Amino acid sequence: MNLFATSSVKRVLAIATGLVLAADGLILIGLGYFNLGVVLPVVMGLGLCALGLRWRQMQRWLSVTPRRAWLWRGFWWAVCFWLATLAAFWVFLASKKLTDVPTNAPAAIIVLGSGSPGSTPSPTLIARLDLALRDAARHPKALVVVSGGISFRTSSEAEVMADYLQQHGLPAGRIVKEERSTSTEENLLFSRRVLAAAGVSSDAPVHIVTSDFHTLRTGLIARRAGYPAATAIGADTPLYLRYNIWLREYFAVISSWALREY
């Protein structure tokens, strides 16, 4: 294959990959999802499309000085390193799916909100709530804390979660709402206070219900937030959202470490 043909293949691949990434993100934005894991593919996709459309001009610009070509190669080596670490992280998340509830009896079950917009639970949040219902049915003496404040809605996410649980048979007397939190760290810190007010000791066993991708970070933050006997259990993430949310979680793990949340 000659140089021209190789260049044409790279150009087509850049445009095709860019269109797939951009379309994926734009479709999810159209469905009401707006976060880093959704926006970043759009930005990357548009960048790849622009690169493909201006491929020859870019090659001419790079050929002006050796320094430009060196920087360009360095940029792509950095991209390859990032993709390798991202792939390793995704493999780790896939191996940590914990959809089966543990057998140890908890004093409380904490259900973390997912930050989804609207007055009804998102598919991701419904998966968490359904898993919490299964866990609560196995442990009828456990208090159930729904944790989530007001974000894109007029009522708190905890209220939306509590309504769903009651509609699906969980008695209102077992549910306690934590309605101030806006992050995972706050979910756990504020729920700790709610549990203390309800008479649950700080060393009591607790199940923390979240999504499969979120169990790693939840467990790390929980230890720092004062849960020595907490077990994080993860609900399946809907397939059409999974890899976008896993992408967001990759950066969230890094940012939580930088912010000393664990």
Results as ranks from 00 to 15, higher is better:
234 G>D: 01
221 I>K: 01
245 I>S: 06
236 D>R: 14
225 A>T: 09
251 F>N: 03
212 D>P: 08
245 I>C: 00
236 D>E: 15
249 E>M: 09
249 E>I: 10
244 N>T: 14
246 W>H: 06
228 P>W: 14
248 R>V: 06
226 G>A: 08
243 Y>I: 01
230 A>S: 15
241 L>R: 03
240 Y>W: 14
246 W>V: 09
216 L>I: 13
232 A>N: 11
213 F>R: 05
249 E>D: 14
220 L>P: 07
236 D>A: 15
239 L>V: 15
234 G>P: 07
238 P>V: 11
243 Y>H: 11
248 R>G: 02
216 L>A: 07
225 A>N: 08
244 N>P: 04
246 W>F: 11
228 P>G: 14
233 I>C: 05
241 L>F: 05
231 T>W: 13
243 Y>E: 02
212 D>G: 10
222 A>F: 01
241 L>E: 00
227 Y>M: 05
244 N>M: 04
251 F>K: 02
247 L>N: 11
233 I>G: 00
230 A>K: 12
246 W>C: 11
232 A>H: 06
232 A>M: 07
230 A>W: 12
237 T>C: 10
217 R>K: 03
219 G>F: 03
240 Y>S: 09
239 L>I: 13
253 V>T: 03
242 R>N: 06
244 N>L: 08
254 I>G: 08
216 L>V: 11
213 F>S: 05
246 W>I: 03
245 I>L: 15
250 Y>C: 08
229 A>L: 02
237 T>E: 02
249 E>P: 13
213 F>D: 01
236 D>Y: 07
242 R>K: 15
218 T>L: 00
249 E>Y: 09
247 L>S: 13
221 I>F: 02
235 A>E: 01
235 A>T: 03
250 Y>H: 12
224 R>W: 09
249 E>Q: 12
236 D>S: 14
244 N>D: 13
